[in-house]
Amino acid sequence: MQRVNMIMAESPGLITICLLGYLLSAECTVFLDHENANKILNRPKRYNSGKLEEFVQGNLERECMEEKCSFEEAREVFENTERTTEFWKQYVDGDQCESNPCLNGGSCKDDINSYECWCPFGFEGKNCELDVTCNIKNGRCEQFCKNSADNKVVCSCTEGYRLAENQKSCEPAVPFPCGRVSVSQTSKLTRAETVFPDVDYVNSTEAETILDNITQSTQSFNDFTRVVGGEDAKPGQFPWQVVLNGKVDAFCGGSIVNEKWIVTAAHCVETGVKITVVAGEHNIEETEHTEQKRNVIRIIPHHNYNAAINKYNHDIALLELDEPLVLNSYVTPICIADKEYTNIFLKFGSGYVSGWGRVFHKGRSALVLQYLRVPLVDRATCLRSTKFTIYNNMFCAGFHEGGRDSCQGDSGGPHVTEVEGTSFLTGIISWGEECAMKGKYGIYTKVSRYVNWIKEKTKLT
Protein backbone atom coordinates (compact mmCIF):
# COMPACT_ATOMS: atom_id res chain seq x y z
CA MET A 1 0.00 0.00 0.00
CA GLN A 2 2.91 2.29 0.80
CA ARG A 3 4.31 1.55 -2.65
CA VAL A 4 1.05 2.46 -4.39
CA ASN A 5 0.85 5.71 -2.55
CA MET A 6 4.36 6.56 -3.61
CA ILE A 7 3.52 5.85 -7.28
CA MET A 8 0.38 8.09 -7.17
CA ALA A 9 2.32 10.85 -5.56
CA GLU A 10 5.13 10.63 -8.04
CA SER A 11 2.97 10.08 -11.23
CA PRO A 12 -0.30 12.12 -11.10
CA GLY A 13 -0.50 12.26 -14.90
CA LEU A 14 -0.66 8.53 -15.06
CA ILE A 15 -3.66 8.48 -12.78
CA THR A 16 -5.51 11.04 -14.94
CA ILE A 17 -4.95 9.01 -18.10
CA CYS A 18 -6.28 5.89 -16.44
CA LEU A 19 -9.45 7.58 -15.24
CA LEU A 20 -10.14 9.11 -18.67
CA GLY A 21 -9.78 5.74 -20.34
CA TYR A 22 -12.25 4.24 -17.92
CA LEU A 23 -14.87 6.92 -18.61
CA LEU A 24 -14.57 6.66 -22.39
CA SER A 25 -15.04 2.92 -22.22
CA ALA A 26 -18.15 3.21 -20.07
CA GLU A 27 -21.72 3.27 -21.73
CA CYS A 28 -23.42 6.70 -21.61
CA THR A 29 -26.95 6.55 -20.17
CA VAL A 30 -27.53 10.31 -19.44
CA PHE A 31 -27.91 11.70 -23.03
CA LEU A 32 -30.30 10.49 -25.76
CA ASP A 33 -29.08 9.73 -29.18
CA HIS A 34 -29.59 12.25 -32.04
CA GLU A 35 -32.73 10.61 -33.50
CA ASN A 36 -34.62 10.35 -30.19
CA ALA A 37 -33.63 13.83 -29.14
CA ASN A 38 -35.29 15.28 -32.27
CA LYS A 39 -38.56 13.50 -31.43
CA ILE A 40 -38.78 15.40 -28.15
CA LEU A 41 -37.78 18.80 -29.58
CA ASN A 42 -39.90 18.55 -32.71
CA ARG A 43 -39.88 22.30 -33.69
CA PRO A 44 -40.19 23.51 -37.31
CA LYS A 45 -37.15 25.10 -38.75
CA ARG A 46 -37.35 28.89 -39.01
CA TYR A 47 -37.00 30.73 -42.31
CA ASN A 48 -33.34 31.55 -41.85
CA SER A 49 -32.43 28.72 -39.55
CA GLY A 50 -28.72 28.25 -39.33
CA LYS A 51 -27.96 31.78 -40.52
CA LEU A 52 -27.26 35.00 -38.70
CA GLU A 53 -30.46 37.16 -38.68
CA GLU A 54 -28.46 40.35 -39.10
CA PHE A 55 -27.54 39.26 -42.63
CA VAL A 56 -31.01 38.25 -43.99
CA GLN A 57 -34.16 40.15 -44.95
CA GLY A 58 -36.69 40.55 -42.12
CA ASN A 59 -39.79 38.36 -41.89
CA LEU A 60 -43.09 39.93 -40.69
CA GLU A 61 -44.25 36.81 -38.86
CA ARG A 62 -40.94 36.31 -37.09
CA GLU A 63 -40.32 39.95 -36.30
CA CYS A 64 -43.78 41.21 -35.26
CA MET A 65 -46.29 38.36 -34.94
CA GLU A 66 -44.43 35.79 -32.82
CA GLU A 67 -43.43 38.58 -30.48
CA LYS A 68 -43.90 42.34 -30.24
CA CYS A 69 -41.53 44.22 -32.47
CA SER A 70 -40.16 47.73 -32.59
CA PHE A 71 -40.54 50.20 -35.43
CA GLU A 72 -36.94 49.48 -36.47
CA GLU A 73 -37.62 45.75 -36.65
CA ALA A 74 -40.71 46.36 -38.77
CA ARG A 75 -38.61 48.65 -40.97
CA GLU A 76 -36.29 45.71 -41.66
CA VAL A 77 -39.26 43.80 -43.13
CA PHE A 78 -40.63 46.53 -45.42
CA GLU A 79 -37.32 48.25 -46.18
CA ASN A 80 -39.41 51.38 -46.82
CA THR A 81 -40.30 54.05 -44.27
CA GLU A 82 -43.66 54.98 -45.83
CA ARG A 83 -44.92 51.37 -45.96
CA THR A 84 -43.61 50.75 -42.47
CA THR A 85 -45.50 53.77 -41.16
CA GLU A 86 -48.77 52.56 -42.70
CA PHE A 87 -48.28 49.13 -41.09
CA TRP A 88 -47.26 50.65 -37.76
CA LYS A 89 -50.46 52.75 -37.46
CA GLN A 90 -52.63 49.63 -37.48
CA TYR A 91 -50.13 47.43 -35.59
CA VAL A 92 -49.97 49.71 -32.56
CA ASP A 93 -53.70 50.35 -31.88
CA GLY A 94 -55.81 48.66 -34.57
CA ASP A 95 -57.53 50.09 -37.65
CA GLN A 96 -59.32 53.36 -36.77
CA CYS A 97 -60.99 53.31 -40.22
CA GLU A 98 -62.77 50.01 -39.60
CA SER A 99 -66.02 51.82 -38.66
CA ASN A 100 -65.99 53.86 -41.91
CA PRO A 101 -66.18 57.26 -40.17
CA CYS A 102 -65.77 59.37 -43.33
CA LEU A 103 -69.03 60.64 -44.84
CA ASN A 104 -70.06 61.74 -48.34
CA GLY A 105 -67.64 59.44 -50.13
CA GLY A 106 -64.58 60.46 -48.10
CA SER A 107 -61.53 58.15 -47.99
CA CYS A 108 -60.22 57.14 -44.56
CA LYS A 109 -56.51 56.95 -43.68
CA ASP A 110 -55.61 55.24 -40.40
CA ASP A 111 -53.33 56.91 -37.85
CA ILE A 112 -52.14 56.15 -34.33
CA ASN A 113 -55.12 56.66 -31.98
CA SER A 114 -56.75 58.67 -34.76
CA TYR A 115 -57.67 58.78 -38.45
CA GLU A 116 -57.77 61.28 -41.29
CA CYS A 117 -60.57 61.71 -43.85
CA TRP A 118 -59.64 62.72 -47.38
CA CYS A 119 -62.78 64.53 -48.52
CA PRO A 120 -64.11 64.77 -52.09
CA PHE A 121 -64.62 68.16 -53.68
CA GLY A 122 -67.36 70.10 -51.95
CA PHE A 123 -66.93 68.67 -48.45
CA GLU A 124 -64.67 69.24 -45.48
CA GLY A 125 -64.55 68.68 -41.72
CA LYS A 126 -63.25 65.86 -39.51
CA ASN A 127 -65.61 63.37 -41.19
CA CYS A 128 -66.30 65.28 -44.46
CA GLU A 129 -69.64 66.29 -42.96
CA LEU A 130 -69.49 69.97 -43.96
CA ASP A 131 -70.71 71.13 -47.37
CA VAL A 132 -68.51 73.83 -48.86
CA THR A 133 -70.17 74.25 -52.24
CA CYS A 134 -73.70 75.06 -53.34
CA ASN A 135 -73.41 72.58 -56.21
CA ILE A 136 -74.07 69.61 -53.92
CA LYS A 137 -77.53 69.41 -52.35
CA ASN A 138 -77.75 73.20 -52.34
CA GLY A 139 -75.01 73.26 -49.69
CA ARG A 140 -77.59 71.74 -47.30
CA CYS A 141 -79.27 75.15 -47.25
CA GLU A 142 -83.04 75.00 -46.86
CA GLN A 143 -83.70 77.83 -49.30
CA PHE A 144 -80.88 79.80 -50.93
CA CYS A 145 -77.16 79.10 -51.14
CA LYS A 146 -74.22 81.26 -52.16
CA ASN A 147 -70.51 80.50 -52.28
CA SER A 148 -68.41 83.10 -50.48
CA ALA A 149 -65.10 84.47 -51.74
CA ASP A 150 -63.23 81.64 -49.97
CA ASN A 151 -65.62 79.08 -51.51
CA LYS A 152 -67.59 78.49 -48.32
CA VAL A 153 -71.35 77.90 -48.26
CA VAL A 154 -73.44 80.85 -47.09
CA CYS A 155 -77.15 80.11 -46.65
CA SER A 156 -79.91 82.71 -46.78
CA CYS A 157 -83.69 82.90 -46.71
CA THR A 158 -86.44 84.68 -48.58
CA GLU A 159 -88.12 87.77 -47.15
CA GLY A 160 -90.03 87.05 -43.95
CA TYR A 161 -87.63 84.33 -42.83
CA ARG A 162 -84.32 84.25 -40.96
CA LEU A 163 -81.58 81.66 -40.62
CA ALA A 164 -81.98 79.26 -37.73
CA GLU A 165 -79.20 78.57 -35.25
CA ASN A 166 -77.74 75.85 -37.47
CA GLN A 167 -77.21 78.46 -40.23
CA LYS A 168 -78.90 76.10 -42.72
CA SER A 169 -82.62 76.08 -41.96
CA CYS A 170 -85.02 78.99 -42.32
CA GLU A 171 -87.53 79.96 -39.65
CA PRO A 172 -90.36 82.51 -39.79
CA ALA A 173 -89.42 86.04 -38.79
CA VAL A 174 -92.97 87.44 -39.17
CA PRO A 175 -96.37 86.12 -38.04
CA PHE A 176 -97.49 85.05 -41.53
CA PRO A 177 -94.47 84.46 -43.76
CA CYS A 178 -94.89 83.82 -47.46
CA GLY A 179 -95.54 80.37 -48.83
CA ARG A 180 -96.45 78.75 -45.51
CA VAL A 181 -99.67 76.93 -44.67
CA SER A 182 -100.52 77.82 -41.07
CA VAL A 183 -104.10 76.58 -40.61
CA SER A 184 -103.76 73.69 -38.18
CA GLN A 185 -106.23 71.29 -39.80
CA THR A 186 -104.59 71.70 -43.21
CA SER A 187 -100.98 71.48 -42.11
CA LYS A 188 -101.27 67.68 -42.25
CA LEU A 189 -102.21 67.99 -45.91
CA THR A 190 -99.05 69.84 -46.85
CA ARG A 191 -97.73 68.38 -50.06
CA ALA A 192 -94.63 66.23 -50.18
CA GLU A 193 -91.51 68.27 -49.52
CA THR A 194 -89.05 68.71 -52.33
CA VAL A 195 -85.42 67.99 -51.50
CA PHE A 196 -82.59 69.64 -53.42
CA PRO A 197 -80.79 67.37 -55.87
CA ASP A 198 -77.19 67.85 -56.94
CA VAL A 199 -77.35 70.86 -59.26
CA ASP A 200 -74.90 72.50 -61.62
CA TYR A 201 -75.51 76.05 -60.41
CA VAL A 202 -73.15 77.55 -62.92
CA ASN A 203 -75.38 76.45 -65.79
CA SER A 204 -78.71 76.44 -63.97
CA THR A 205 -80.19 79.40 -65.80
CA GLU A 206 -81.12 78.27 -69.26
CA ALA A 207 -79.49 80.06 -72.15
CA GLU A 208 -82.77 81.08 -73.69
CA THR A 209 -83.53 84.05 -75.88
CA ILE A 210 -86.82 85.78 -75.25
CA LEU A 211 -88.43 86.35 -78.60
CA ASP A 212 -89.38 89.95 -77.89
CA ASN A 213 -89.16 91.20 -81.45
CA ILE A 214 -91.18 88.50 -83.19
CA THR A 215 -94.23 89.84 -84.95
CA GLN A 216 -96.99 87.37 -85.48
CA SER A 217 -100.61 87.57 -86.50
CA THR A 218 -103.15 86.94 -83.80
CA GLN A 219 -103.79 83.22 -83.46
CA SER A 220 -107.25 81.82 -82.89
CA PHE A 221 -107.11 79.66 -79.77
CA ASN A 222 -109.95 77.52 -78.49
CA ASP A 223 -110.74 77.91 -74.80
CA PHE A 224 -107.32 79.29 -74.04
CA THR A 225 -108.35 81.10 -70.87
CA ARG A 226 -107.59 77.91 -69.09
CA VAL A 227 -108.68 72.31 -62.46
CA VAL A 228 -109.84 69.19 -64.22
CA GLY A 229 -109.33 65.98 -62.26
CA GLY A 230 -108.20 67.87 -59.16
CA GLU A 231 -109.17 67.64 -55.51
CA ASP A 232 -111.07 69.94 -53.18
CA ALA A 233 -108.67 72.11 -51.24
CA LYS A 234 -109.15 72.61 -47.51
CA PRO A 235 -109.73 76.14 -46.18
CA GLY A 236 -106.35 77.86 -45.89
CA GLN A 237 -104.47 75.20 -47.85
CA PHE A 238 -103.55 77.71 -50.60
CA PRO A 239 -103.75 81.03 -48.74
CA TRP A 240 -102.00 82.96 -51.55
CA GLN A 241 -104.78 82.15 -54.04
CA VAL A 242 -107.25 84.91 -54.95
CA VAL A 243 -110.26 85.00 -57.26
CA LEU A 244 -110.99 87.84 -59.70
CA ASN A 245 -114.57 89.04 -60.19
CA GLY A 246 -115.53 91.40 -63.01
CA LYS A 247 -118.23 91.19 -65.64
CA VAL A 248 -118.63 87.64 -64.36
CA ASP A 249 -117.54 86.13 -61.08
CA ALA A 250 -114.47 83.90 -60.84
CA PHE A 251 -113.37 84.68 -64.39
CA CYS A 252 -109.68 84.34 -63.45
CA GLY A 253 -107.37 83.69 -60.54
CA GLY A 254 -104.28 85.33 -59.13
CA SER A 255 -101.65 85.19 -56.37
CA ILE A 256 -100.86 87.52 -53.48
CA VAL A 257 -97.42 89.14 -53.85
CA ASN A 258 -97.83 91.28 -50.73
CA GLU A 259 -100.56 93.22 -48.93
CA LYS A 260 -101.05 95.63 -51.84
CA TRP A 261 -100.28 93.63 -54.98
CA ILE A 262 -101.63 90.66 -56.94
CA VAL A 263 -99.96 88.88 -59.87
CA THR A 264 -102.13 87.34 -62.59
CA ALA A 265 -102.22 86.68 -66.35
CA ALA A 266 -102.27 89.74 -68.61
CA HIS A 267 -104.95 88.25 -70.86
CA CYS A 268 -107.33 88.19 -67.87
CA VAL A 269 -107.59 91.96 -67.51
CA GLU A 270 -109.12 94.62 -69.73
CA THR A 271 -108.64 98.34 -69.49
CA GLY A 272 -111.75 100.05 -68.15
CA VAL A 273 -113.31 96.92 -66.65
CA LYS A 274 -113.79 97.06 -62.89
CA ILE A 275 -112.14 94.15 -61.10
CA THR A 276 -112.68 93.01 -57.53
CA VAL A 277 -110.15 90.75 -55.83
CA VAL A 278 -111.33 88.30 -53.17
CA ALA A 279 -108.64 86.80 -50.91
CA GLY A 280 -109.26 84.10 -48.32
CA GLU A 281 -111.92 82.53 -50.55
CA HIS A 282 -112.73 78.82 -50.43
CA ASN A 283 -116.33 78.17 -51.52
CA ILE A 284 -117.43 80.92 -53.89
CA GLU A 285 -121.10 80.36 -53.09
CA GLU A 286 -120.76 80.56 -49.32
CA THR A 287 -119.69 83.25 -46.89
CA GLU A 288 -117.08 81.68 -44.63
CA HIS A 289 -115.93 84.90 -42.89
CA THR A 290 -112.37 84.42 -44.09
CA GLU A 291 -112.86 86.47 -47.27
CA GLN A 292 -111.35 89.91 -47.87
CA LYS A 293 -112.55 91.95 -50.86
CA ARG A 294 -110.51 94.72 -52.46
CA ASN A 295 -110.93 96.86 -55.55
CA VAL A 296 -108.21 97.08 -58.20
CA ILE A 297 -107.03 100.66 -58.68
CA ARG A 298 -104.19 100.03 -61.14
CA ILE A 299 -103.34 97.39 -63.72
CA ILE A 300 -99.74 96.97 -64.93
CA PRO A 301 -99.33 94.47 -67.78
CA HIS A 302 -95.75 93.55 -68.61
CA HIS A 303 -94.24 96.17 -70.91
CA ASN A 304 -93.65 93.54 -73.64
CA TYR A 305 -97.23 92.29 -73.59
CA ASN A 306 -99.21 93.11 -76.73
CA ALA A 307 -102.53 91.30 -77.11
CA ALA A 308 -102.87 92.56 -80.70
CA ILE A 309 -99.79 90.55 -81.67
CA ASN A 310 -100.11 87.56 -79.35
CA LYS A 311 -102.55 87.24 -76.48
CA TYR A 312 -100.37 84.85 -74.49
CA ASN A 313 -96.79 86.03 -75.00
CA HIS A 314 -95.49 87.74 -71.83
CA ASP A 315 -98.80 86.82 -70.24
CA ILE A 316 -98.33 88.44 -66.85
CA ALA A 317 -99.80 91.51 -65.11
CA LEU A 318 -99.82 93.15 -61.69
CA LEU A 319 -102.90 94.49 -59.89
CA GLU A 320 -102.65 97.20 -57.24
CA LEU A 321 -105.31 97.10 -54.51
CA ASP A 322 -107.11 100.08 -53.01
CA GLU A 323 -106.50 98.90 -49.43
CA PRO A 324 -103.86 96.55 -48.03
CA LEU A 325 -104.90 93.01 -47.25
CA VAL A 326 -104.75 91.90 -43.62
CA LEU A 327 -102.47 88.89 -43.53
CA ASN A 328 -103.60 85.84 -41.59
CA SER A 329 -103.76 82.05 -41.94
CA TYR A 330 -106.20 82.36 -44.86
CA VAL A 331 -104.55 85.33 -46.58
CA THR A 332 -100.80 84.84 -47.04
CA PRO A 333 -98.41 85.92 -49.85
CA ILE A 334 -96.67 83.44 -52.12
CA CYS A 335 -92.87 83.46 -52.00
CA ILE A 336 -90.98 84.77 -55.03
CA ALA A 337 -87.31 83.84 -55.30
CA ASP A 338 -84.71 85.43 -57.57
CA LYS A 339 -84.42 84.46 -61.23
CA GLU A 340 -81.85 81.72 -60.69
CA TYR A 341 -83.66 79.94 -57.89
CA THR A 342 -87.11 80.29 -59.47
CA ASN A 343 -85.70 78.47 -62.48
CA ILE A 344 -84.07 75.83 -60.26
CA PHE A 345 -87.30 75.26 -58.35
CA LEU A 346 -89.22 74.81 -61.61
CA LYS A 347 -86.75 72.10 -62.64
CA PHE A 348 -87.59 70.10 -59.54
CA GLY A 349 -90.14 68.54 -61.86
CA SER A 350 -93.61 69.06 -60.43
CA GLY A 351 -95.74 71.86 -59.09
CA TYR A 352 -99.23 72.58 -57.82
CA VAL A 353 -101.92 74.50 -59.67
CA SER A 354 -105.15 75.72 -58.11
CA GLY A 355 -108.30 77.57 -59.08
CA TRP A 356 -112.08 77.65 -59.43
CA GLY A 357 -112.06 76.91 -63.16
CA ARG A 358 -114.19 74.41 -65.00
CA VAL A 359 -114.02 70.88 -63.64
CA PHE A 360 -114.22 69.47 -67.19
CA HIS A 361 -114.00 70.89 -70.72
CA LYS A 362 -116.95 73.23 -71.36
CA GLY A 363 -118.41 72.06 -68.06
CA ARG A 364 -119.46 73.88 -64.91
CA SER A 365 -117.06 75.90 -62.79
CA ALA A 366 -115.95 74.58 -59.42
CA LEU A 367 -117.55 75.98 -56.29
CA VAL A 368 -114.75 74.86 -53.97
CA LEU A 369 -111.12 75.68 -54.72
CA GLN A 370 -109.50 72.83 -56.65
CA TYR A 371 -105.84 71.84 -56.72
CA LEU A 372 -103.74 69.43 -58.74
CA ARG A 373 -100.13 68.33 -58.84
CA VAL A 374 -98.77 68.49 -62.38
CA PRO A 375 -95.41 67.25 -63.71
CA LEU A 376 -93.13 69.47 -65.77
CA VAL A 377 -92.98 68.44 -69.44
CA ASP A 378 -89.67 68.61 -71.29
CA ARG A 379 -89.49 71.29 -73.94
CA ALA A 380 -89.10 68.94 -76.90
CA THR A 381 -92.27 67.05 -75.97
CA CYS A 382 -94.04 70.33 -75.35
CA LEU A 383 -93.17 71.68 -78.81
CA ARG A 384 -94.30 68.47 -80.53
CA SER A 385 -97.66 68.54 -78.77
CA THR A 386 -99.02 71.66 -80.49
CA LYS A 387 -98.97 73.58 -83.75
CA PHE A 388 -98.91 76.86 -81.84
CA THR A 389 -95.77 78.75 -80.82
CA ILE A 390 -94.30 77.94 -77.42
CA TYR A 391 -92.03 80.85 -76.53
CA ASN A 392 -89.04 80.54 -74.22
CA ASN A 393 -90.95 82.44 -71.55
CA MET A 394 -93.51 79.61 -71.41
CA PHE A 395 -93.39 76.02 -70.17
CA CYS A 396 -95.64 72.96 -70.37
CA ALA A 397 -96.96 70.89 -67.49
CA GLY A 398 -99.53 68.13 -67.27
CA PHE A 399 -100.24 64.51 -68.17
CA HIS A 400 -99.89 62.95 -71.60
CA GLU A 401 -102.84 60.62 -70.97
CA GLY A 402 -105.10 63.59 -70.27
CA GLY A 403 -107.86 63.65 -67.68
CA ARG A 404 -106.17 66.17 -65.39
CA ASP A 405 -105.35 69.77 -66.20
CA SER A 406 -106.04 73.42 -65.49
CA CYS A 407 -109.05 74.77 -67.40
CA GLN A 408 -111.18 77.82 -68.16
CA GLY A 409 -111.41 80.13 -65.18
CA ASP A 410 -108.06 79.01 -63.74
CA SER A 411 -106.06 81.49 -65.85
CA GLY A 412 -103.88 83.84 -63.86
CA GLY A 413 -103.71 81.41 -60.97
CA PRO A 414 -100.48 80.08 -59.49
CA HIS A 415 -98.17 77.25 -60.41
CA VAL A 416 -96.14 76.77 -57.23
CA THR A 417 -93.25 74.54 -56.21
CA GLU A 418 -92.94 73.50 -52.60
CA VAL A 419 -89.39 73.66 -51.24
CA GLU A 420 -88.86 72.12 -47.81
CA GLY A 421 -92.35 73.14 -46.71
CA THR A 422 -92.34 76.63 -48.26
CA SER A 423 -94.08 77.31 -51.60
CA PHE A 424 -92.56 79.51 -54.31
CA LEU A 425 -94.27 80.91 -57.40
CA THR A 426 -92.83 79.24 -60.51
CA GLY A 427 -95.55 79.77 -63.11
CA ILE A 428 -98.85 81.44 -64.00
CA ILE A 429 -101.68 79.48 -65.62
CA SER A 430 -101.95 80.88 -69.15
CA TRP A 431 -103.48 78.75 -71.91
CA GLY A 432 -103.97 75.33 -73.49
CA GLU A 433 -105.88 73.44 -76.16
CA GLU A 434 -109.19 72.38 -74.64
CA CYS A 435 -108.76 70.94 -71.13
CA ALA A 436 -107.25 67.65 -70.01
CA MET A 437 -107.08 66.45 -73.61
CA LYS A 438 -104.84 63.44 -74.32
CA GLY A 439 -101.48 64.48 -75.75
CA LYS A 440 -102.04 68.14 -74.83
CA TYR A 441 -100.60 70.08 -71.93
CA GLY A 442 -101.28 73.21 -69.94
CA ILE A 443 -99.09 76.16 -70.93
CA TYR A 444 -97.73 78.44 -68.20
CA THR A 445 -95.91 81.75 -68.05
CA LYS A 446 -92.38 81.14 -66.77
CA VAL A 447 -92.10 83.38 -63.71
CA SER A 448 -88.29 83.19 -63.58
CA ARG A 449 -88.25 85.58 -66.57
CA TYR A 450 -90.18 88.24 -64.68
CA VAL A 451 -89.14 88.14 -61.02
CA ASN A 452 -87.03 91.30 -61.22
CA TRP A 453 -89.91 93.16 -62.85
CA ILE A 454 -92.37 91.88 -60.23
CA LYS A 455 -90.18 92.91 -57.31
CA GLU A 456 -89.42 96.32 -58.79
CA LYS A 457 -93.09 97.17 -59.38
CA THR A 458 -94.51 95.80 -56.13
CA LYS A 459 -92.22 97.44 -53.59
CA LEU A 460 -94.13 98.60 -50.53
CA THR A 461 -93.47 102.28 -49.74
Rank of each mutant, 00 (worst) to 15 (best):
V4F: 14
N5H: 13
E10G: 15
T16V: 08
L23E: 02
S25F: 14
E35V: 11
N42S: 10
P44V: 11
N48S: 14
K51M: 07
E53C: 04
M65L: 09
C69L: 04
C69R: 04
C69W: 03
E72P: 14
V77L: 11
N80L: 04
R83E: 05
E86N: 10
W88T: 15
Y91G: 15
E98N: 12
S107I: 03
C108V: 01
D111G: 08
D111S: 09
Y115I: 02
C117V: 00
C117L: 00
F123P: 01
K126H: 09
L130M: 15
L130Y: 12
L130W: 07
T133K: 15
K137L: 13
N138G: 05
R140P: 07
C145F: 02
D150V: 08
V153G: 08
V154L: 13
C157Y: 01
T158I: 09
L163S: 03
E171H: 06
E171W: 07
V174S: 09
R180E: 02
S184V: 12
L189I: 15
V195E: 14
A207I: 11
E208T: 15
N213I: 07
I214Y: 14
T215H: 05
R226M: 12
G229R: 14
G229N: 07
K234A: 11
V242S: 02
V248E: 08
V263M: 03
A265N: 03
A266R: 03
A266K: 02
E270W: 07
I275R: 02
T276L: 05
H282D: 04
I284S: 08
K293R: 13
R294Y: 01
R298T: 10
H303A: 08
Y305M: 02
N306I: 05
N313R: 14
L318E: 00
L321V: 05
E323C: 04
V326K: 08
T332Y: 04
P333K: 04
Y341P: 04
K347N: 12
F348K: 08
K362F: 05
A366R: 07
Y371V: 11
V374K: 03
L376F: 09
L376C: 02
L376V: 08
T381Y: 08
T381I: 12
C382W: 02
S385Q: 13
T386V: 07
Y391M: 14
H400T: 13
G403T: 15
P414D: 03
P414G: 11
V416E: 02
T417L: 01
V419D: 01
F424S: 01
L425Q: 02
G427M: 00
I428R: 00
E434I: 09
M437Y: 13
G439Y: 06
K446M: 05
Y450P: 00
I454P: 00
T458C: 06
